[in-house]
Amino acid sequence: MIRQKTASHSLELTKRRWAYTFLVVPILFYVVIRFYPTFYAFFLSTTDWDIVSKNKDFIGLENYRNLFSDALFWKTLGNTGKYVAYGLPVSLFLGFVIAYNIDRIRLGEGFFKAVYFIPYITSMVAVAWVWRWLYQPAPIGVFNKILMELELPQQKFLFSQTQAIFSILATTIWADIGFQMIIFLAGIKGISTQYYEAAEIDGAGNWDQLRYVTLPLLKPTIVFLIVTGTIRYLRIFTQVLNMSYQGEGGPLNSTKPLVLYIYDTAFRSFDMGYASAMTVVLFLIILTITLIQLRVMKSEE
């Protein structure tokens, strides 16, 4: 007995050793091009480096102190929060509704899947520019032209401090739904039909099946989509850069997300130290949210 155990043990060990050997190569790669720059950003955040200077003067936590009194930092952080808080639930809900209904049809399933998925694989820059034109005032912008035809008042969309962020969100959600839908669809298809048969025998209707079978069994899918979606919306950037002129995130910074502010600070104002400090803050936010979500997921297992 004991002998057998040791033998299988050493076999396991050899197997593991090989696995580790194979893992070393990608780890080296990760260390050099991912972890090193990551930690370097932590270091940079304590300097006043201006991109061309040889010296990276250590200034301690001054960048972080400045963040506290930087109104624009809080504004952009708030905007980023809005993108997540409004964008994610809506795109998840719509993604699920579409997936649920596509799963129920037999004819033209592939067609509908493609229609909803195409926006997701379209270049965000192209999407942003097309929508930017759609939002223009009449007679150029299609949306305002439709409003006019219906004798409704025109809307300012991207030129309004209150509407601009939702206009950009609408574009984002439109492009994002395809991804949510495909993952939901995979989740729904993965649920064994036995559950539904059993539910039907128990007399459960469509609504009850959705409520007590589909949704609970989709929990891992939902958590996965929430985690990746949160990160995606926290990092929103391309849309805003392309939908506001010269990527300023206007009007009056009302659409500027934190990532765009970081980009401006680093690559337009060349204040790498300050930009790194903001990056670190964003990193910590993403990390915290992700850890909380993973914890929630684990505790429900």
């Binding site: 091009i33 991912r34 720059p37 958590v223 680093a266 930009a275 990056t279 992700t290």
Partner: peptide
């Protein structure tokens, strides 16, 4: 979903994010 994507993709994405934003200069 949980094993593959949650852990690897979640963390890799985070790291990638920082890399993209702060590490650009060094690439």
């Amino acid at each position: 979903f949980k094993e593959e994507h949650m852990k690897k993709k979640g963390f890799a994405t985070i790291v990638l994010l920082v890399l993209l934003m702060a590490g650009n200069a060094f690439l």
